[in-house]
Amino acid sequence: MTDSAPRVSDHTVEQIVGRLLQLGVLIAALVVLAGGMLLLAQHGGAPASFSVFHGEPDGLRSIAGILRGVGAMQSQAIVQLGLLLLIATPVARVAFTLVAFVLQRDRTYVAVTALVLALLLYGLVFGHA
C-alpha cells in the first residue's frame, strides 16, 4: 500500500462503500416492507403453513420473473425484488473493492477480487451450484 502511494486510500474507499451499503440495505428493507404490507393486506387471512416444501413458482425465483411480477404489482414479487436488492448489496461491495484495486494498480488483488465477483454473479444470475 505504501510503496505505490495510492491517491485513494483503502480506508476512504471502505468508508464510502460502507455508507452505500447501508443505503442499499435501507432501500431493500423499504421495498420488502411495502411488499410485505401489501401481501398481508391481500392474503393476510389465508392460512400460513410452510411445513411442506413446495419450492417457489417460476415467477418468484428468476430475476426476469420477479421483474414481471413487480410490473403487475404482485405483492410477493415486490418482496422478492427487495430481497434481490439485498442480495445484490454485498455483490456491489465486491465490485467497489475491485474498482479500488484497479485505481491502486494492484494487479494481484484485481485478479483475486474479479474472481470473487465472478463466483457471486455466477450464483446470482445462473443459480447453479
Binding site: G35, L39, R61, S75, Q80, H128
Partner: peptide, 13 residues
Amino acid sequence: AGVYLHRGYIDPT
C-alpha cells in the same frame, strides 16, 4: 442466497 433464490428456497411470506 442467489442459488437458493433460483431453487425456490426463498419464500416471501
